[in-house]
Measured scan of single mutants.
Amino acid sequence: NRRVIAMPSVRKWAREKGVDIRLVQGTGKNGRVLKEDIDAFLAG
């Protein structure tokens, strides 16, 4: 159960899209999950 680094707005975006943010690979600094990462995860 790893800790995910993400801005609150990104966490909210993931929740709205029904995405478990822990499954998303972050591409930002220090592995931070970005809004673009959520979109890419949804795109496959």
Results as ranks from 00 to 15, higher is better:
Asn1Val: 13
Asn1Asp: 12
Arg2Ala: 10
Arg2Pro: 11
Arg2Gly: 10
Arg2Asp: 11
Arg2Phe: 08
Arg2Tyr: 08
Arg2Asn: 11
Arg3Gly: 10
Arg3Met: 10
Arg3Asp: 09
Arg3His: 11
Arg3Ala: 10
Val4Phe: 06
Ile5Asn: 10
Ile5Thr: 08
Ile5Asp: 07
Ile5Leu: 11
Ile5Cys: 15
Ala6Gln: 04
Ala6Met: 04
Met7Pro: 09
Met7Gly: 15
Met7Ser: 15
Met7Leu: 14
Met7Asn: 15
Met7Lys: 15
Pro8Phe: 07
Pro8His: 09
Ser9Lys: 10
Ser9Thr: 08
Ser9Ala: 13
Ser9Arg: 08
Val10Ala: 06
Val10Asp: 03
Arg11Val: 11
Arg11Tyr: 13
Arg11His: 11
Arg11Ile: 13
Lys12Pro: 00
Lys12Asn: 09
Trp13His: 15
Trp13Thr: 15
Trp13Phe: 15
Trp13Cys: 15
Ala14His: 02
Ala14Lys: 01
Ala14Pro: 09
Arg15Asn: 12
Arg15Asp: 15
Glu16His: 09
Glu16Lys: 13
Lys17Thr: 09
Lys17Leu: 13
Lys17Trp: 10
Lys17Ser: 09
Lys17Gly: 04
Lys17Ile: 10
Gly18Asn: 09
Gly18Ala: 05
Gly18Pro: 00
Val19Ser: 00
Val19Asn: 00
Val19Cys: 05
Val19Thr: 03
Val19Trp: 01
Val19Ala: 03
Asp20Asn: 09
Asp20Leu: 04
Asp20Lys: 04
Asp20Thr: 03
Asp20Gln: 05
Asp20Phe: 04
Asp20Trp: 04
Asp20Tyr: 04
Ile21Val: 05
Ile21Cys: 02
Ile21Tyr: 03
Ile21Asn: 00
Arg22Ser: 10
Arg22Tyr: 09
Arg22Ile: 05
Arg22Met: 10
Arg22Pro: 02
Leu23Asn: 09
Leu23Ile: 10
Leu23Val: 10
Leu23Thr: 08
Leu23His: 10
Val24Glu: 01
Val24Met: 04
Val24Ile: 11
Val24Trp: 01
Gln25Tyr: 11
Gln25Asp: 10
Gln25Glu: 11
Gly26Pro: 08
Gly26Ile: 02
Gly26Thr: 03
Gly26Lys: 02
Gly26Phe: 01
Gly26Trp: 01
Thr27Glu: 02
Gly28Ala: 04
Gly28Asp: 02
Gly28Pro: 00
Gly28Glu: 01
Lys29Ser: 09
Lys29Phe: 11
Lys29Ala: 13
Asn30Ser: 09
Asn30Tyr: 12
Asn30Pro: 01
Asn30Ala: 10
Asn30His: 12
Asn30Thr: 04
Gly31Lys: 06
Gly31Val: 01
Gly31Arg: 05
Arg32Ile: 08
Arg32Pro: 01
Arg32Glu: 15
Val33Glu: 00
Leu34Ile: 08
Leu34Trp: 03
Leu34Arg: 08
Leu34Met: 09
Lys35His: 12
Lys35Pro: 04
Lys35Glu: 05
Lys35Ile: 10
Glu36Ala: 13
Glu36Val: 12
Glu36Leu: 08
Asp37Ala: 02
Asp37Phe: 03
Asp37Arg: 00
Asp37Ile: 03
Asp37Lys: 00
Asp39Gly: 05
Asp39Tyr: 06
Asp39His: 05
Ala40Glu: 10
Ala40Gly: 07
Ala40Lys: 13
Ala40Thr: 11
Ala40Trp: 08
Ala40Cys: 14
Ala40Ile: 08
Ala40Pro: 02
Phe41Ser: 04
Leu42Ala: 10
Leu42Asp: 05
Leu42Glu: 06
Leu42Phe: 07
Ala43Trp: 09
Ala43Asn: 12
Ala43Asp: 11
Ala43Ile: 12
Ala43Phe: 09
Gly44Pro: 08
Gly44Ala: 14
Gly44Arg: 14
